[in-house]
């Protein structure tokens, strides 16, 4: 599903964000990426989503070699990924339901089915009472759950969440992690970055620690 061999990422200003990354992630795997702010967690996710490209090494995501200049293939790949961004990237002045449906529209799902599945996804994250609320009127936690619903409703092969526990209190953070984990199945791998290590201890998961651009795989358990 994901394979990185000696991958490095250096930004145009010379900042070395990632060095010598080697990893393999398979279907159904739950992966936590931890590390301090600025350690390179988000850079790693950017590589997986094709927002950045490796400066050297070889990275393959869902069978697609990640390199610059293949926009068409990249767009196709992104349709198989469910991203939950740190700042959510919800579309303002649209309702929660419209935001969830937008991710499905791109896939060409028939309108009736799309609406039904979007409503179910919002129900699953506990927002069935906020379907028609504009997203700017939602709380932080609610907006985050809309972002999760938007990501999972597409039944992605890869669910990626960047710092979903940031800015949340202990209980809400646990709740969000629980929701994300519930979407993991034999086909969908879930990758979550967080610096709240105390929330994720002792799970059946792979833990990757990022420190100054280098990764260490601390524990590997494959679901199943």
């Amino acid at each position: 599903m994901i394979e990185a061999n000696d991958v490095a990422l250096t930004y145009s200003d010379g900042t070395k964000a990632l060095k010598n990354v080697n990893l393999k992630i398979g279907p159904g795997e739950l992966v936590y990426i931890t590390g301090h702010s600025g350690s390179g967690k988000t850079s790693l996710l950017k590589l997986l989503m094709g927002i950045e490209f490796p400066s050297s090494g070889k990275l393959t995501v869902l069978g697609q070699r990640m390199k610059k200049g293949n926009d068409r293939k990249l767009r196709k790949l992104r349709r198989k990924i469910g991203p939950v961004f740190q700042e959510f990237k919800l579309i303002e002045r649209r309702t929660a339901l419209e935001n969830v449906m937008i991710g499905m529209r791109i896939l060409g799902i028939p309108p009736r089915k799309m609406k039904q599945e979007a409503m179910e996804a919002l129900k699953k994250v506990g927002l069935e009472h906020k379907l028609h609320t504009p997203v700017e009127h939602l709380s932080w936690g609610e907006a985050q759950r809309v972002a999760i619903a938007r990501a999972v409703v597409r039944k992605p092969a890869l669910l990626i969440a960047d710092e979903p526990t940031g800015n949340l209190d202990h209980n809400n953070a646990l709740n969000i992690l629980h929701i994300l984990n519930s979407f993991r199945d034999e086909k969908t791998a879930v990758i979550i970055t967080t610096h709240a290590t105390h929330l994720i201890e002792g799970q059946d998961a792979t833990y990757i620690r990022v420190q100054e651009g280098e990764i260490t795989i601390e524990q590997r358990r494959v679901a199943g």
Partner: peptide, 16 residues
């Protein structure tokens, strides 16, 4: 531009 960027990250084609 924010909305366009989001759509792009979700894999929307340019025509969409």
């Amino acid at each position: 531009k924010e909305q366009i960027n989001t759509l792009r990250l979700l894999g929307a084609p340019n025509s969409f």
